[in-house]
C-alpha cells in the first residue's frame, strides 16, 4: 500500500521537484519576480503524474490511473511530436498499419514510452480490421 495522501501538493511537497529541479516551496511570487523561477517550472512532472495515478488507482479508478501513466510518458515529448501522433491517429491519415507501428517503436526507443507504444499498436490493429487506412482527402 501507498503512503500517498491527497492533495499531493501538501503531502508530497518535499518529494516533488519542478522540471528544472526546484522545490514546490520555491514557487513563490518573490522568485517569479526575481526571475529565478520561470514558466518552465510550472509544468507537470512525470513523478507527479505517477503519484496521481496511484491516488486514482486507490480510489478504484483504474482507467484514469492508466491515462495518467500514459501521460507520464509524454511529459518530455515535444508538442510537435504529440501533434504528429495525434494527426496520425485520425482516420485515413496513416496509409497503413505500418506507419503507426513504426511510430510506436520510435516512442518506445526514444522516450521509453512503452504504454504509449502499446496503445498505438492497439490502434493500428483496430484500424486495420475496420479499414481505416483509406484516403479521406
Amino acid at each position: 500500500m501507498s503512503d500517498i495522501s491527497y492533495p499531493v501538493t501538501d503531502s508530497a511537497a518535499d518529494k516533488l521537484s519542478t522540471a528544472t529541479g526546484k522545490k514546490l516551496s520555491d514557487l513563490t511570487l518573490e522568485n517569479v519576480l526575481a526571475g529565478t523561477v520561470t514558466a518552465a517550472d510550472f509544468s507537470i512532472t512525470r513523478e507527479a503524474l505517477l503519484l496521481q495515478a496511484e491516488v486514482a488507482r486507490l480510489a478504484s479508478r483504474r482507467s484514469l490511473a492508466e491515462n495518467f501513466e500514459r501521460a507520464s510518458e509524454l511529459v518530455g515529448v515535444p508538442n510537435e511530436t504529440i501533434f504528429e501522433i495525434y494527426e496520425l491517429l485520425r482516420p485515413g491519415r496513416a496509409a497503413s498499419a505500418e506507419a503507426l507501428k513504426e511510430r510506436a517503436q520510435h516512442m518506445r526507443n526514444v522516450y521509453g514510452a512503452n504504454r504509449i507504444a502499446a496503445f498505438l499498436e492497439e490502434a493500428a490493429a483496430a484500424y486495420e480490421r475496420r479499414s481505416l487506412f483509406r484516403r479521406r482527402y
Binding site: T9, L16, L27, A48, V55, A59
Partner: peptide, 12 residues
C-alpha cells in the same frame, strides 16, 4: 500555475 506541478486538479 502552482497547481499544475503536482496535478491534484487532474483528479475526478
Amino acid at each position: 500555475l502552482r497547481l499544475r506541478v503536482a496535478g491534484d486538479h487532474l483528479q475526478t
